[in-house]
């Protein structure tokens, strides 16, 4: 049950209506940044206020919410936001990707493929992909309007010139539906292919910058690249030390001060469910055989 003294999901209904209008416009123009009247929230800008406002505007009493931060359900930010909605909306929460109707995320897309009817809400720090080379908002809007996106490749060119390959590894720019250039928020480029033609609705909220944008279901999302340096995702020589997965995004964990380290899944739900299904990784196998 929701606590007394709050409107359902914290925001007042007029604000939700305003944000829903922005979301509808964003869905109608995939990748286009729609300005909206971002509200003060009971936590600072930069802590996911954009995502929270989007979630608050679309969530209903029957929804089930999952919140992740860097793929994990149990970090401070994820726990706080989950609790926030549990208290102000009284909705059910879950850690299971497929059980959620809404997944709010910071910096990752779940490994478990999303399906039709699910909504992924991204927390976005800086929405404007052209900002690094053009500080004037009026000018970046004009560049979007006229599709003057060639300069974006300058950055990728610099990567190759400096490192021999495109070294940008997160917040990797994409073209949505062959039209708007978009920042996917600081997700690893490993996750970029998951955005392409996803059956789920993807919504992006930037609270401080007051922008909302969207990728409707089944929309083409292409990562920028060069003909002779095609887009590639990260690969690891290791598998997850815990569940043995060779297909997920791995975090490196330093285990001691003598250079010891291991790689584990960044998506905690995915990793735990694989363990439940009986998968093991190098670390868990060692522990079991060591104990036997």
């Amino acid at each position: 049950m929701a606590e007394d003294g709050y409107n359902f999901a914290y925001l007042d209904e007029q604000t939700k209506r305003m944000i829903r209008r922005a979301i509808l416009k964003a869905v109608a123009i995939p990748g286009y940044q729609v300005p909206f009247g971002s509200r003060e929230m009971p936590l600072p800008f930069g802590w996911g206020t954009g995502g929270i406002q989007v979630t608050a505007s679309i969530i209903g009493p029957d929804d089930t919410l999952k919140v992740i931060d860097q793929g994990a359900d149990d970090t401070v930010n994820a726990v706080s936001i989950r609790k926030f909605f549990a208290r102000t909306a009284g909705v059910a929460t879950t850690e299971q990707t497929e059980a959620a109707t809404i997944v709010q995320t910071r910096h990752r897309i779940p490994e478990t493929p999303l399906g039709a009817g699910q909504i992924l809400v991204y927390q976005v720090p800086i929405p404007e992909p052209l900002r690094w080379l053009e500080p004037r908002e009026a000018e970046t809007r004009k560049m979007h309007a006229l599709e003057e996106y060639g300069v974006m490749h300058v950055r990728l060119y610099e990567d190759i010139a400096r490192f021999g390959h495109i070294a940008t590894s997160y917040d990797y720019p994409v073209r949505v539906n062959g039209r708007y250039l978009m920042r996917p928020s600081p997700i690893p480029k490993f996750d970029n292919p998951k955005m392409d033609r996803s059956p789920a609705l993807q919504l992006f909220g930037a609270g401080r910058e007051k922008r909302i944008y969207a990728i409707p279901p089944h929309t083409q999302v292409r990562s920028l690249d060069f003909d002779d340096h095609p887009f590639e995702v990260q690969k690891w020589a290791d598998v997850c030390a815990v569940c043995g997965s060779g297909e997920s995004f791995l975090d490196e964990i330093v285990t001691d001060d003598r250079g010891g380290r291991m790689f584990v899944c960044s998506d905690t739900d995915y990793c735990a469910r694989r363990r439940e299904a009986g998968h093991t990784g190098p670390a868990t196998r060692d522990a079991e055989t060591g104990g036997a």
Partner: peptide, 24 residues
């Protein structure tokens, strides 16, 4: 000039702006 990017990128920018997509 774009002071923050290399000489090569400064020259290449106009080409990329008109659609050049082959790094080499």
């Amino acid at each position: 000039l774009r002071m923050g990017v290399s000489a090569g990128a400064n020259i290449g920018e106009r080409l990329m702006a008109v659609g050049a997509r082959h790094y080499g």
